[in-house]
Computed example of a mutant assay.
Amino acid sequence: MLTIRFLGADTMKNRKYYEQLYTEYPTVVTLIQFRQMLGGIGDTTARKLMRENRVKHYYIRHTYLIPKDWVIDYVLSEHYAEYREQLKVQV
């Protein structure tokens, strides 16, 4: 299992920060890895984000594949900024 290092709340979270945070993940992640990257969100929540096209992804043979860059794009998006207030675990 991959470990995620948390920095202080006052650390500016930009693309470089997330690229470093997610270095242990492959270039293209699965739905399970995506859920881990967002702090362990539920399967239903992750699939809802995909269905609503909040996160760019590929859906091939009943499998979600998400390039790591697209995960970072989502985490830096306005939607995630609003949405993370509702999440129990924040990245």
Rank of each mutant, 00 (worst) to 15 (best):
Arg5His: 13
Leu7Thr: 15
Leu7Ser: 15
Gly8Val: 12
Asp10Glu: 12
Asn14Leu: 09
Asn14Thr: 12
Tyr17Ile: 05
Gln20Val: 10
Gln20His: 09
Gln20Asn: 15
Leu21Gly: 03
Leu21Glu: 08
Tyr22Leu: 11
Glu24Ile: 02
Pro26Phe: 08
Thr27Tyr: 12
Val28His: 06
Val28Arg: 15
Val29Glu: 05
Thr30Val: 11
Thr30Tyr: 01
Thr30Ala: 04
Leu31Val: 12
Ile32His: 13
Gln33Thr: 02
Phe34Val: 01
Phe34Gly: 01
Gln36Trp: 00
Gln36Ala: 06
Gln36Tyr: 03
Gly39Leu: 05
Gly40Thr: 02
Thr45Lys: 08
Ala46Trp: 02
Arg47Tyr: 00
Arg47Val: 07
Lys48His: 11
Leu49Val: 01
Leu49Arg: 04
Met50Thr: 02
Arg51Glu: 07
Arg51Asp: 05
Glu52His: 07
Glu52Trp: 07
Val55Leu: 04
His57Pro: 10
Tyr59Glu: 10
Tyr59Asn: 06
Arg61Asn: 09
His62Leu: 11
Tyr64Thr: 01
Ile66Trp: 08
Val71Ala: 00
Asp73Ala: 10
Tyr74Cys: 02
Tyr74Arg: 06
Tyr74Glu: 00
Val75Leu: 14
Leu76Lys: 11
Ser77Gln: 10
Ser77Asp: 02
Ala81Cys: 05
Ala81Phe: 09
Ala81Ile: 09
Ala81Asn: 08
Glu82Val: 08
Tyr83Pro: 01
Arg84Leu: 06
Glu85Asn: 07
